[in-house]
C-alpha cells in the first residue's frame, strides 16, 4: 500500500481584491471584487511506506497548501488523495492518530514548560498508556540526544535544541508517516546536520515515512532518495535524487581564504575560477563535481597555501529551479516536466 497516493489534486482560493485608498476600501466593503488564485494545480504523485520523500520549491509554490490537504485541514477543489488508506478531508481524526507533524515556524511545545510536559500531554492526546509514554519518551530522548534538555523550559532552548524536541514529539505516538514542513528553517549548519541525521536514523530504525518540505536543497540532499520539485502549484521535476544531482546539483561554489597571499598560476582541472582577489588572500571557484572529485580540489587548494577558512556551498535552489523551469519551458509542455528517462546523460 502506498503511504500517500495523490491524483490530480487541485486547490483554488478566492481572494478579495481591494483598490487603493479610502474609496477603494469602502467599495470593497459593499461589492468586493473576487479573484481566484490557483495554489495547487493538478498534482499527482505517490509515496511508498517508509520512504523519505523531499518536497521542495520556493516560498508560495504550494507546498504548505499540499501538506494541509494531506493532513485533512483543507479540502481540495478537485482531485483525490489517500494517506495511509484514509481520505484525509473525510477522516481527519482517524488519520491524525497515525501521522505526526512538525511545522517549522510554529512550535507545538508549551513555551514556558519543560518539553517533557508537552510529551506527556501528547501521550494523553494520542491515547497512549502512561507506561508506554514513559518508555517512548526515554527512547526518543536518547535517539535525539535531548535527555539533558527535557527538564528545561522550552523558551530557554536554542532553536536547534527546540527543533530536536519538536521532531521527537511528533514521533511519540509511533506514527507511520511524519510530515515535516521546513524543519531546518533558521538553523545553523551544525544543528541542521544533526537533525537530518536523527530523522534519517528514525526512518531506518522505525520505518516511519517522512515527507519533508524545504526550500533548502541541502536538506533534501542529505535526507531524501527521491525528490519532487514544485513551483506555481505544479510538479516541475520528480525523480530520484541521484538523477537530480547528476543533472543539476553538479556545481559547488568553493570560497577560500588563505593565511598568506597566494598566486594562482595553474588552473585546477574541473574548476572554474570565479574570482581571485582580496590582495591574494581570497579565492572563489566553481567546481563541477561530475568531472572532478571535490576532495581532490581541496587538496590542490591546500597546496596553494595555508588555508584559514573554507566554505563549500550548493548553488541556490532558486537557481536550480530556474534551470529546470527554463528547460521545461523550452521543451514546450507549459512548465511541467516529468523526465521519465532519468538516466539520460546530463546535457
Amino acid at each position: 500500500m502506498a503511504a500517500i497516493d495523490v491524483q490530480d489534486l487541485r486547490k483554488q482560493f478566492t481572494v478579495k481584491h481591494k483598490a487603493a485608498g479610502l474609496g477603494g476600501s469602502l467599495r470593497a466593503l459593499w461589492r468586493p471584487r473576487l479573484g481566484v488564485v490557483e495554489a495547487v494545480r493538478g498534482l499527482s504523485f505517490r509515496m511508498e511506506e517508509g520512504e523519505l520523500l523531499g518536497f521542495i520549491g520556493p516560498n508560495g509554490a504550494g507546498k504548505s497548501t499540499t501538506i494541509k490537504m494531506l493532513t485533512g485541514i483543507l479540502h481540495p477543489t478537485s482531485g483525490e488523495a489517500r494517506v495511509l488508506g484514509h481520505v484525509p478531508w473525510k477522516e481527519r481524526r482517524q488519520l491524525a492518530y497515525h501521522i505526526g507533524t512538525v511545522f517549522g515556524q510554529r512550535s507545538q511545545l508549551w513555551m514556558h514548560l519543560p518539553a517533557v510536559d508537552t510529551f506527556q500531554l501528547f501521550g494523553r492526546i494520542y491515547e497512549l498508556d502512561p507506561a508506554e509514554t514513559r518508555r517512548r519518551i526515554a527512547m526518543l530522548a536518547e535517539a535525539f540526544e535531548i535527555e539533558h534538555l527535557l527538564e528545561t523550559p522550552v523558551r530557554k532552548l536554542s532553536l536547534g535544541q527546540r527543533m530536536r524536541c519538536e521532531v521527537a514529539a511528533s514521533l511519540l505516538h509511533r506514527p507511520k508517516l511524519i510530515l515535516l514542513d521546513e524543519p531546518s528553517i533558521g538553523l545553523d549548519p551544525v544543528a541542521k546536520q544533526r537533525i537530518r541525521e536523527m530523522i534519517k536514523r528514525m526512518n531506518a530504525e522505525e520505518g516511519v515515512g517522512v515527507l519533508l518540505t524545504s526550500h533548502d536543497a541541502g536538506d533534501i540532499e542529505a535526507l531524501c532518495k527521491r525528490v519532487i520539485i514544485i513551483n506555481h502549484g505544479q510538479i516541475v521535476y520528480e525523480d530520484r535524487l541521484s538523477a537530480l544531482k547528476r543533472r543539476y546539483l553538479t556545481e559547488k561554489d568553493v570560497s577560500v581564504r588563505f593565511v598568506e597571499p597566494v598566486t594562482v598560476d595553474v588552473a585546477i582541472p574541473g574548476t572554474e575560477l570565479v574570482k581571485a582577489g582580496g590582495g591574494g588572500y581570497g579565492l572563489k571557484l566553481k567546481v563541477d563535481t561530475a568531472r572532478t572529485n571535490i576532495a581532490e580540489v581541496l587538496e590542490r587548494i591546500g597546496h596553494l597555501g595555508e588555508v584559514e577558512d573554507i566554505t563549500i556551498s550548493d548553488p541556490a535552489l532558486e537557481e536550480i529551479i530556474r534551470t529546470i523551469y527554463e528547460q521545461a519551458a523550452l521543451s514546450g509542455d507549459g512548465g511541467s516536466a516529468n523526465p521519465e528517462a532519468s538516466d539520460a546523460p546530463a546535457t
Partner: peptide, 27 residues
C-alpha cells in the same frame, strides 16, 4: 467518536487543562 470520547476523552482534556495551568504558573 462517542465511544472513543468516553474512553479517553476526559483524560485527554484534563491533561490539556493541567498543562495549561502549569504553563500559567510558570512565572
Amino acid at each position: 467518536a462517542t465511544r472513543r470520547f468516553w474512553r479517553a476523552g476526559p483524560a485527554k482534556y484534563t491533561a490539556v487543562l493541567r498543562t495549561q495551568l502549569a504553563h500559567g504558573l510558570a512565572f
